[in-house]
Amino acid sequence: MDKTAEKLTPFVLLFTRLVVGYLFLIHGTVKLFEFPFPNKGGAVSAMSILGVGGILEVVGGILIALGLFTRFTGFILAGLMAVAYFFFHASLENWLHPIVNRGELASIYCMVFLIYMVIGPGKWSLDEWLKNRNR
């Protein structure tokens, strides 16, 4: 089983990066452009706190999907999701209950981005390609 898992690791990291990056990108495009779906409150201003978050979601989603600057991007996005959780979801009464305060997605994204920060993007990424190209 260990050898199979080792062989599958690059595929799983690539697939996970593509899915997480795409989903995060879509969060940003909905906020900023109401694309591909309308946003309940309409598009937010890029100069608002939600707009800055949307910009980070778009740019960060693309970078994660490509596996480019992955560790740095993971660090920034984990921080963004921690801020999203503690400032927009958690309150004094329910900060430890993400299912109640609707912060479970921010919590999960935060943990996933911390994983990317620690383990990197994997073998099939632009980071790896750039590293090997410069040798």
Rank of each mutant, 00 (worst) to 15 (best):
L25M: 14
F113R: 01
G61C: 08
S91I: 10
F75S: 09
V59W: 02
F88R: 07
P121K: 04
L32F: 00
K31M: 02
L68N: 09
E57A: 12
D127W: 06
L50K: 12
A82P: 03
L114A: 08
L105V: 15
L50D: 15
L96A: 14
I99K: 03
V20N: 05
E93H: 13
P98E: 11
I64G: 09
I26E: 11
F87M: 05
E104G: 08
F86N: 04
G28E: 05
P10T: 04
G74M: 09
F87T: 01
E93V: 11
L77P: 12
F35T: 04
N94C: 03
C110I: 01
G51R: 06
R135F: 03
I64K: 05
V58L: 06
W129G: 02
G120E: 08
R135Q: 12
N101G: 10
I99P: 00
H97K: 12
R133P: 01
G41V: 03
L25Y: 15
A43E: 00
L8N: 09
F72V: 15
I119W: 04
L96T: 13
G60E: 06
H27V: 03
I119L: 05
M111V: 13
N101R: 09
I108N: 03
F33K: 01
E6F: 09
V12E: 00
I119S: 12
R17H: 10
S45W: 03
E104C: 07
E57N: 09
L13R: 05
L8F: 14
G21T: 04
S107L: 15
N132G: 00
A78H: 05
V44G: 05
C110V: 01
M47F: 15
A65K: 04
Y116N: 02
R133I: 02
F24W: 13
N101K: 07
T16M: 14
R135Y: 04
